[in-house]
Simulated assay, not measured.
Amino acid sequence: MSTHDQGHESVVERTSAPQDRPRTVLDVRSLGPPAPLANTLERLADLPDEAVLLQRNDRAPQFLYPKLEDRGYTYETLETDAEVVTVIWRE
């Protein structure tokens, strides 16, 4: 389920996320709350620890941040013209 395209690559390169790990993209832009939060946490639970998840959203996922911190994830959110991308990984 890994997706690589120019837009996502450039977003990851602008973060502190590891550049050499497998990446998975989760697009939650069309989902209403609380589906983006639930889908992101479910996907993270299914991914290996070395994977990097890119969540594509239409807003910053404010309620996701404390849950990521509780679970030991590091994250960075970048806003582009078209979307908000949160890059999530384990150190």
Rank of each mutant, 00 (worst) to 15 (best):
P48H: 01
Y65K: 08
E69P: 01
D5Y: 15
D58N: 14
E79D: 15
T24M: 12
R59Q: 14
T24F: 11
V87S: 08
T15F: 06
V87N: 07
P33W: 10
D81V: 11
E9M: 10
V84W: 13
D20V: 01
S2T: 09
G7Q: 11
R59A: 15
S2P: 07
R14H: 05
A45I: 04
L37G: 08
V52F: 03
T86A: 03
L64R: 07
N39V: 11
T74V: 02
A60G: 02
Q19G: 05
P36A: 13
A17L: 08
D5N: 15
D5P: 04
V52Q: 00
T3Q: 13
L53V: 02
E69D: 14
V84D: 06
R59V: 13
R29P: 03
T80M: 13
T40E: 08
R23M: 13
N39I: 05
R90W: 00
E83R: 13
E79I: 10
L26M: 09
R59M: 10
A38N: 15
L68H: 06
T15R: 05
L44H: 05
S10H: 12
M1Q: 03
Q6K: 11
S2F: 06
A60K: 14
D49P: 00
E13V: 04
D46M: 12
L44S: 02
S10M: 14
E69V: 13
E9Q: 14
T80W: 09
E91G: 09
L37D: 07
M1F: 07
P18A: 02
N57M: 10
V52D: 00
L37M: 12
I88D: 02
E79N: 13
E9P: 01
L78F: 04
T77Y: 11
H8T: 11
E9K: 09
D81C: 02
Y73T: 04
I88E: 02
A82P: 00
A17P: 05
A51K: 00
Q19E: 09
P61H: 11
L31D: 12
R14I: 00
E91Q: 06
T74L: 09
A51L: 00
P34H: 11
P48S: 04
P18L: 05
R56S: 09
L68S: 07
L54V: 08
R71V: 00
V11C: 07
E50D: 15
E42V: 10
V85E: 01
A38I: 15
T15M: 07
I88G: 01
R56C: 08
L47I: 03
Y65C: 03
R43K: 15
D27W: 09
I88F: 05
P22I: 14
E50L: 03
P18N: 03
Y75L: 07
R59K: 13
K67R: 14
T74S: 13
W89Q: 01
E9V: 14
G72W: 00
T15A: 06
D5R: 15
V25E: 10
R43E: 15
L26C: 07
S30W: 04
R29I: 13
R43A: 15
T24K: 11
E76H: 12
A35K: 14
T86I: 04
I88K: 03
P18C: 03
A45H: 12
A17N: 05
L64Y: 06
P36F: 12
G7P: 03
P66Y: 08
A45M: 04
P33C: 01
E76S: 11
V28F: 08
L41S: 07
D58R: 15
A82W: 08
Q55A: 12
E76P: 02
G7C: 03
Y73P: 00
